[in-house]
């Protein structure tokens, strides 16, 4: 029975490793590799100490003097034995101090190694955390080449990336386990985080600091591409929205611009230019919606527009009382924004 439970647990862990990846132990870049190495070193040292303490305990129990109940108690300690145990305790303390010092040194060296990343040609991304989604602004020396997206980052493989981290409301924390450790986003302050992805792939990130009702549903994806693919993606993101001329999508566009959506969302190339909710200019190019809560499918999108509170109670997006055809039209419009 325990074997079956262990097998189920193992399968569950393997299932969790299916795409997208969120795993500290399979690093995709130098920063995460250093963190993984530090983890292995710490695990080895702690395992050694734990095993040593248990072995000493067993030994002491094994060798403890066994006296009959009638034997008189020893009232004065034997000087020789006292000296011997004093030496042993001293040696144990010295070993503990040395091992702790070793761990501190390893930690400091890891910190230094993580920080050493040449930032020449770095991709600069400003991330602003909101309750409960992520905004990403890709910076560029040429202002016309900056663009904004949300909840899905794309980065080129092999190029350094410099994140500037901000928050609009409460403290959040950015954590992509496959690429780097956690870094807090604090309102009114600016933090930076630098990393590099060496392996292409899709990595899942998550808010790692409790930030309110929907903290658990504040995820995002980091897609690491070869440079050429990244450049193609970025060029697409810089364009204004291109909606389809399909009748349903045209109706959806009217509803979007004439209704409540336009009060919070931006679609570049239209009159929608509010920044309270995620930028929707290239909504159809994203894999998830509502910060990794749902898959970006027409059905999920319609259910989300109808009543977001059903999926993320407390989220700032209000429910809609539009008729079904209008919700379908809105979804068709958004799904055509590639």
């Amino acid at each position: 029975m325990p074997l079956a439970a262990a097998a189920v647990l193992l399968l569950a862990c393997m299932g969790a490793h299916a795409s997208p990846l969120q795993d500290v132990l399979s690093p995709a870049g130098p920063q995460a590799s250093h963190i993984r190495d530090l983890w292995h070193i710490t695990l080895a040292v702690c395992t050694l100490v734990f095993a040593g303490v248990l072995a000493a305990l067993v030994l002491v129990l094994w060798r403890s003097p066994r006296a009959a109940s009638t034997t008189a108690a020893e009232l004065r300690p034997a000087a020789a034995r006292e000296r011997r145990s004093g030496r042993r305790v001293g040696a144990a303390i010295a070993a503990s101090v040395l091992l702790l010092l070793f761990l501190i040194v390893a930690s400091v060296l890891t910190d230094r190694a993580i920080a050493q990343l040449a930032l020449k040609d770095a991709v600069r991304i400003e991330i602003t955390a909101n309750q409960w989604w992520w905004e990403a602004r890709y910076d560029d020396d040429d202002p016309s080449r900056t663009f904004t997206t949300a909840n899905e980052l794309h980065i080129p493989v092999g190029r350094p990336v410099l994140f500037t981290l901000k928050s609009n409301d409460v403290i959040h924390s950015l954590w992509v386990p496959n690429l780097h450790g956690k870094k807090d986003l604090i309102p009114g302050r600016t933090a930076t985080l630098q990393l590099r992805a060496d392996k292409p792939g899709v990595y899942r990130g998550q808010c790692a600091e409790f930030c309110g009702f929907q903290h658990a549903f504040m995820a995002f994806l980091v897609v690491a591409h070869p440079l050429a693919d990244y450049e193609a993606w970025a060029a697409g993101q810089r364009r204004s929205a291109v909606a389809s001329g399909d009748a349903q999508a045209v109706r959806g566009r009217e509803l979007f611009l004439g209704g409540t959506c336009v009060m919070c969302h931006t679609v570049l190339g239209t009159t929608a230019s509010a920044h309270r909710g995620p930028d929707l200019t290239h909504f159809a190019s994203r894999q998830t919606l509502a910060a990794g809560t749902l898959a970006n499918t027409p059905e999920d999108l319609q259910r989300w527009i109808r009543n977001p509170q059903q999926f993320k109670p407390g989220v700032n997006m209000p429910a809609s009382n539009l008729p079904d055809e209008d919700i379908k039209a809105l979804a068709a419009y958004l799904r055509s924004l590639s």
Binding site: G258, G259, T260, M263, P318, A319
Partner: peptide, 8 residues
């Protein structure tokens, strides 16, 4: 009207 939901 029409731009802000009624409960808001």
């Amino acid at each position: 009207g029409g731009h802000i939901p009624e409960d808001q």
